[in-house]
């Protein structure tokens, strides 16, 4: 399968099933478009088709290069992975990542929060150290021969239970020595309780910190007020700037991560606002909300959002060439050391490799399913009781979704989010169409940036 498009003056040809990305001139672009529906077309037919536009010599030259790529399986390649990936998914499941909900409570009242002010449709609760220990023990004992394990401290707001975070991290370091494992700890915070002591701790122990910020002050404060209705921008931004600067100097990862909604469809300005504040690892993504929510992204918003991605991509190229570039998470594509095809086609691992743990130790397929009793898998002391659900999640890969079969982005998005699929279609093996449309645009933008920076 071949996907070709023009963007920002570049002709880009993506050979979907090999992952090869080619930047081509108009001649090759036109010839590939003519050939791709019927590869058996004779060279004479191609030459005749372009008579008057390109000389026979030019067409012959283009065909020679195209055939060389085809012979090298870099163009017009086919999907040869299905059997191998399905066999791979039949191997015994190991758990390698936990999302630890150390607090089902929050000191903000974000309007779009899927966790309903951190409480996940339930009651306020903090995870005890004992429950957290049992969760880490569960992870280690179910991780098989996987050495790299991940634990994300999540909420609600995890800093409302910081002492447990600190103690669980220390316990994890003990487990590393005992079992020859490596923990990658991460933490997501709204910044309200962030202080010097917590920053120092995170700089020592957290491989990544996700700092929640939505953009310009008026945007952030509209969507992320405190429980008394006051905005939180002025309180958290100076702390985030200091934290990010420290982590940059230490070579540690962080992300400033926001959500854009129908209220700020000009979100490229929010991304650039972050960059102008000094942040260089940035993520802003579209809200996923019930269609009738006033802040939800609507189908008629898609054109505006795509224009914003174009504007953002062009500005990122300009800043990169000026030596003041930044990383935008949703334009990240690694063309030289990207993940293997098993990873790409298997998806995020929710319900199998990745589980969420509630403050009282219940297991769910991921944080988005927490609070939905239909998806309660078991608990950390007795393990997974719903192996039927695990089997469903295990078979939920790109090949399970008919919508992905003809989509050029399937090796980049991995089939999308099971929770989004459930929320919109009451099944986990479908897709969220607005999300798909925007993912395709982001892939196109990301590849165009690669082309521009390769000039």
């Amino acid at each position: 399968m071949v996907h070709q498009y023009r963007n920002n003056g570049y002709n880009i040809v993506l050979d979907v099933d090999s992952g090869s990305v080619h930047v081509v001139d108009d001649l090759v672009y036109d010839v590939i478009a003519f050939l791709k529906d019927d590869l058996s077309k004779a060279d004479d037919a191609v030459t005749a088709r372009f008579a008057g536009r390109y000389s026979p010599e030019e067409v012959s030259e283009a065909l020679e290069e195209i055939r060389a790529l085809e012979k090298n399986h870099q163009l017009f390649s086919r999907d040869i992975y299905r059997d191998a990936v399905l066999d791979f998914r039949n191997h015994p499941t190991v758990v390698k990542a936990l999302c630890l909900h150390v607090a089902h409570d929050c000191n903000l009242a974000c309007r779009y929060c899927f966790a309903q002010e951190g409480e996940y449709h339930g009651v306020r609760a903090l995870m005890s150290y004992e429950t957290g220990k049992a969760a880490l023990d569960y992870l280690v004992s179910h991780s098989g021969n996987r050495r790299n394990l991940e634990v994300d401290f999540f909420g609600g707001e995890p800093l409302m239970n910081f002492e447990v975070v600190r103690k669980l991290t220390a316990y994890g370091r003990e487990l590393e020595k005992m079992h020859d494992k490596h923990f990658r700890f991460t933490l997501t915070t709204n910044g309200v309780l962030l202080d010097e002591n917590i920053m120092d701790f995170c700089n020592r122990e957290m491989d990544n910190v996700v700092l929640s910020l939505d953009g310009r002050k008026e945007i952030h404060d509209k969507m992320r007020p405190s429980r008394n209705g006051k905005g939180s921008y002025d309180l958290i931004v100076p702390k985030f700037q200091k934290f990010a600067k420290q982590r940059k100097e230490l070579g540690k990862q962080y992300y400033v991560r926001g959500t854009f909604t129908h209220y700020n469809l000009d979100f490229a300005r929010d991304v650039l606002h972050f960059a102008d504040l000094g942040f260089d690892q940035i993520s802003i993504e579209p809200v996923v909300a019930p269609a009738d929510a006033p802040y939800a992204i609507r189908p008629e918003d898609l054109g505006t959002i795509k224009e914003q991605y174009d504007l953002l991509a062009q500005e990122m190229i300009r800043r990169e060439k000026e030596g003041r570039g930044f990383t935008f998470f949703h334009f990240m594509i690694d063309l030289t050391g990207g993940p293997c095809v098993y990873k790409r086609l298997s998806g995020c691992g929710s319900g199998t490799e990745y589980l969420a743990v509630t403050p009282w130790g219940d297991l769910y397929p991921c944080h988005q399913f927490v609070g939905n009793e239909e998806f309660l898998l078991g608990n950390v002391t007795e393990g997974v009781k719903r192996s039927d659900l695990v089997s469903i999640f295990k078979s939920c890969n790109v090949y399970a979704r008919k919508e992905c079969r003809d989509c050029f982005a399937r090796y980049y998005c991995s089939g999308g989010c099971a929770a989004n699929s459930w929320n919109f279609h009451q099944r986990i093996d479908s897709v969220y169409e607005i999300g798909c449309e925007l993912e395709r645009k982001r892939v196109e933008s990301a590849l165009m940036i690669k082309a521009a920076l390769a000039d």
């Binding site: 090869s20 080619h22 081509v24 290069e65 992975y81 050495r147 063309l335 990207g338 990745y354 590849l447």
Partner: peptide, 29 residues
């Protein structure tokens, strides 16, 4: 090549032969 510039070096076919160890990071995105 005169008309085509290929940007990447690692093919998915190659990763089928060598990949699948499961040691990489999970990512819900």
């Amino acid at each position: 090549m005169k008309h085509i510039k290929t940007l990447n070096t690692r093919s998915l076919q190659e990763s089928m032969k060598k990949g699948g160890c499961g040691e990489c990071q999970t990512s819900c995105q």
